[in-house]
Amino acid sequence: MPYAPSEGARIWYEEAGHGLPLLFIHEFGADHREWEDQVRFFSREYRCLTYAARGYTPSDVPDDPKLYGQDFAVKDAVAVLRHLGIPKAHIVGLSMGGFAAILFGIRHPEMAISLVPAGAGSGSPREEQAAFRAGCQARGDKLIAQGWAGELAEETGHSPTRIQLKKKDPRGWAAYMQRLSEHSGLGSGLTMKHYQGERDSIFDWEAELRRMTVPTLLAVGDEDGPCVATNVWLKSVLPNCGLWLCPRTGHAINLEEPAAFNREVAAFLSTVERGRWTLG
C-alpha cells in the first residue's frame, strides 16, 4: 500500500488520472472513499489524490491523543503532497476536511492553486462553541468505548443535516452507513475529542482570512444549519472568494448532489486556471 510519512503516523493515499493535482480531504463521518464520484469525474482531466486521515484505516491509528488535532490535519495534507513531489495543488475538503482546507490556505498559500471548503464551520460561532466542544468530548469518549456499533452510527445517519441523503439516495446512504461502520472507534474518538473538540473557531482567524488571497469557492447546502451562517461570514471576509449555496441540501453536499457539486467545482477550477478568478 502507498503511504506518505507524516509526524507520528503513516498516511495512506491513492491517486488517479493525470494533469494538475487535485487533493481531496474527507470529513469526520466518512473517509477517502466518499470522494469516489468526484475522482471518477475529475480524474479525466486532473491528477486526483485522496487519503485517509490519521485515525482512519488504512492510515495509522495512533493511540496517543497528542497525535491528533487541527495542526496534524494540515501537516498530513502537506505530507501527502511533498511525498509525491507536488509543489502546488487544488485543495477540496468537506466539513472537517473543509476546515483543514481553509487552515491549509492560511498556513501554506504557496501550495494552494485554489481552495474549495465545503460544509465547513460547525461549532465555530462563539455562542455555540462551548456546547459544541463539550459534545465532542462526550461523543469521543463514547466512540472510544463503543465504536460505531448501532446507536452512534444510526444517530449520525439520521441527524438533521444527514437525513437528506437517505431521502434522495437510499442506496448511497446505505453505502455511506456501511463505510461508517468500518471506521476505528479509537481513531474516530480521538479525532472527535482532539481535532473536532479542540479546534479553533473559524472566527478566530479573521485577520489571517482577510489577508488570504488564494482563490476560494465556499460550498454549503442550504439545509446544513450549523454551517450556513459561518459561510456567509466567510464570504464577507475572504477577499478572493465566491459562495455557492446548494438548495435543499444538507451536510454531505458532494454525496447528495454529486453532479451539481462536480459541475460547480469544475467551473471554478477552470476559471482559476484561465486567470479569470480575479480580485476586485
Score class of each variant (00 low, 15 high):
E34S: 14
W35D: 03
W35C: 03
W35Y: 09
D37S: 13
D37P: 10
D37E: 12
Q38S: 12
Q38A: 10
V39R: 02
V39K: 02
R40P: 12
R40H: 12
R40Q: 13
F41P: 04
F41S: 02
F41N: 00
F41K: 00
F41W: 06
F42K: 14
F42N: 10
F42D: 10
F42E: 11
S43F: 09
S43Q: 11
R44N: 09
R44I: 07
R44T: 12
E45D: 13
E45C: 11
R47Q: 07
R47K: 11
C48D: 12
L49M: 11
L49E: 03
L49I: 15
L49T: 06
T50E: 05
T50Q: 04
Y51E: 07
Y51R: 08
Y51G: 02
A52D: 13
A53R: 15
R54H: 01
R54A: 00
G55P: 14
G55H: 01
G55I: 06
G55A: 08
Y56T: 10
Y56V: 11
T57N: 07
T57Y: 10
T57V: 13
P58G: 05
P58R: 03
S59L: 11
S59H: 04
S59T: 05
S59N: 04
S59I: 04
S59C: 07
D60L: 06
D60E: 12
V61Q: 02
V61G: 00
V61H: 01
P62S: 01
P62H: 01
D63E: 13
D63W: 06
D63H: 14
P65I: 10
P65W: 05
P65E: 07
P65A: 07
P65V: 07
K66G: 06
K66W: 03
L67C: 02
Y68C: 06
G69W: 00
G69F: 00
Q70V: 13
Q70Y: 08
Q70R: 14
D71W: 13
D71M: 14
D71Q: 13
F72W: 10
F72N: 00
F72G: 00
A73N: 12
A73S: 11
A73Y: 06
A73G: 13
A73W: 08
A73V: 09
A73I: 08
V74H: 06
V74Q: 07
K75C: 07
K75E: 15
K75I: 08
K75V: 05
D76T: 05
D76Y: 08
D76F: 05
A77C: 08
A77F: 01
A77E: 07
V78K: 14
V78C: 12
V78H: 02
A79H: 08
A79G: 09
V80S: 08
V80P: 15
